[in-house]
């Protein structure tokens, strides 16, 4: 263990746990909010079933604003709102609202794109069967777009992993925070190496899990 003199494995373990907590919590709420938002974007979009030019433009604008904001800024700007939602602006709980706010618009756009890939003929056939709008979404659109939506969740999860690295700003901890504070600011290269390798493993697991699920649900 001579090479890893600076590494406190307990700290690493706690940081890993923090990263996983932030990832799990924020991914859950991102999908919960982003999926309906993506469906709404798709449905109100140009030439779709519920084309609403004004509403689509408004939603689209909000999504673009949130997406263009650097995450580190969002983290700080959101502090009052975060306090309101979770009661604290610090730690893992304080990081989740800005993470969700940062990832939801991104995820919603990916969902919108996945839904646009669904053959219009399938929507038409489902309409011709006498399906209600809710039935068209639940029984046709979402099942048909499932591989695309799983791929979107995968990409979003990986994006969230990199966002969590900045969550140290509000004291949320996590592997990225450890890498910045010890690895970068204190020149502890061994800590940097361990955290980066752990993040790499996490991303690898997420990506291959996502890819497998996509293959499993692809029937084309």
């Amino acid at each position: 263990m001579n090479y890893f003199t600076n590494v406190d494995w307990y700290d690493i373990w706690m940081a890993t746990l923090d990263t996983l907590l932030m990832l799990g919590g924020s991914l859950f709420f991102t999908v919960l909010l982003g999926l309906p938002l993506g469906v709404l974007l798709f449905m109100t979009g140009p030439k779709q079933m519920f084309e609403r030019k004004g509403l689509y433009a408004l939603l689209s604008f909000c999504v673009n604003v949130l997406r263009s904001l650097p995450f580190i800024i969002l983290l700080i700007v959101m502090i009052p709102l975060t306090l309101l939602i979770t009661g604290t602006s610090l730690g893992v709980a304080g990081a989740i609202p800005p993470l969700v706010a940062g990832a939801t618009p991104f995820f919603a756009r990916l969902v919108e794109t996945a839904l646009r890939e669904v053959d219009r003929g399938i929507i038409e056939a489902t309409q011709a069967m006498g399906a209600s709008t809710r039935q068209i979404i639940v029984s046709a659109l979402l099942p048909e777009a499932r591989p695309g939506i799983i791929a979107a969740i995968t990409v979003t999860a990986i994006t969230l992993v990199s966002y969590t690295a900045m969550a140290g700003v509000v004291g949320a901890g996590g592997l990225g925070d450890l890498a910045i504070r010890y690895g970068y600011q204190r020149f502890q290269t061994d800590v940097m190496l361990v955290t980066v390798v752990l993040l790499l493993i996490l991303v690898q697991i997420l990506q291959s899990l996502g890819d497998r699920l996509v293959v499993h649900y692809s029937r084309k």
């Binding site: 399938i122 056939a125 399906a131 029984s139 048909e144």
Partner: peptide
């Protein structure tokens, strides 16, 4: 009214995510 009307298409428009049986069952489930 549409539930009492059948329609078939040039490009079939079957749901790729559902089995043959589930495709046929769809109008009944709806």
């Amino acid at each position: 009214f549409r539930q009492k009307l059948g329609m078939i298409f040039q490009h079939f428009n079957l749901l790729s995510s559902k089995t043959v049986a589930d495709n046929v069952a769809m109008p009944l489930k709806l």
